[in-house]
């Protein structure tokens, strides 16, 4: 169920250049699933006015804690990065439909492909998959070495490969270059990242099941304002989907890329 809650900051730190890891405590954690997001109001004033959609990167139901990882770039996320332990943060969530963990066959292998700030939701997904006995392979692309994060965390869950645009970490290039080189064996893939990456992946494994997580500018975040529309392909019966309430995760082939 979607709820609004003033969650409490339990931890916040800069884990890479301008990349923050923020852990919040509150009861809405109980309803969270991998791939869902929260809509965060960073200030009680009108500046900035709109909430910021951020994916859920880690869910700890025992402790009622959820972690998000975000890039502090614009004015909203910069204000968020100033929050101190004990501060309250106005959170609406959990929102959207997450990754279908059950789409991976028992004893199978899942390929997780992420780009930049699209990587965070794949962390909770990887844990959920591993908990079901599914092997995970992680292939992540970043711009440069100084914005890479969570190498150790992902490495304990499965094979983890990095690629950077400038070659400062791992192979030089894009995730698709690395995938060409690695030729991983897997049953299903899950991806989250910039549109060009999703576009490249869409046709990359034509015979495999795949799920893509999308980003779009949002207003309400709950499906009421029609801000976050994506056109669908003719493989579907719908004319459009809303990223916030129908997504953000869609099976490949649904959204026109």
């Amino acid at each position: 169920m979607i709820q609004q809650e003033r969650m409490i900051v339990v931890r916040q730190s800069e884990i890479a250049h301008h990349i923050f890891e923020l852990t919040l405590q509150g009861k809405i954690v109980q309803d969270m699933n991998p791939g869902q997001f929260v809509h965060i109001r960073v200030s009680d004033s009108f500046e900035p006015l709109l909430r910021r959609p951020i994916s859920i990167a880690n869910i700890n139901k025992e402790a009622n804690e959820a972690t998000v990882i975000y890039r502090a770039e614009g004015r909203g996320t910069q204000i968020l990065s100033q929050k101190q332990v004990g501060d309250e943060v106005d959170v609406l969530g959990p929102l959207g439909n997450g990754f279908p963990v059950e789409a991976a066959p028992e004893g199978g292998t899942a390929l997780l492909v992420g780009g930049g700030i699209g990587v965070p939701p794949l962390y909770e997904l990887s844990q959920a998959l591993n908990a079901r006995g599914i092997r995970t392979i992680h292939v992540f692309g970043f711009a440069t070495e100084d914005v890479c994060f969570y190498e150790d965390e992902f490495s304990t869950l499965g094979d983890t490969h990095f690629v950077t645009v400038d070659g400062t970490k791992g192979t030089k290039g894009f995730v698709t270059d690395l995938l060409d080189e690695l030729k991983p064996e897997f049953d299903v893939f899950y991806a989250c990242g910039p549109l060009p990456m999703l576009r490249a992946l869409e046709g990359f494994y034509p015979e495999k099941k795949g799920y893509l997580s999308f980003e779009e500018r949002m207003g309400c975040g709950i499906g009421a304002c029609f801000a976050c529309i994506c056109k669908t392909t003719d493989q579907t019966e719908k004319d459009y989907v809303k990223v916030c309430s129908d997504g953000p995760v869609f099976p490949k082939g649904v959204v026109e890329l």
Binding site: F46, E47, P48, L49, L50, E216, R217, M218, G219, C225, F226, A227, C228, I229, C230
Partner: peptide, 11 residues
């Protein structure tokens, strides 16, 4: 899209 943009105290 984009169909929305934030502005000072508005959108």
């Amino acid at each position: 899209t984009p169909r929305v943009a934030e502005t000072a105290a508005g959108m």
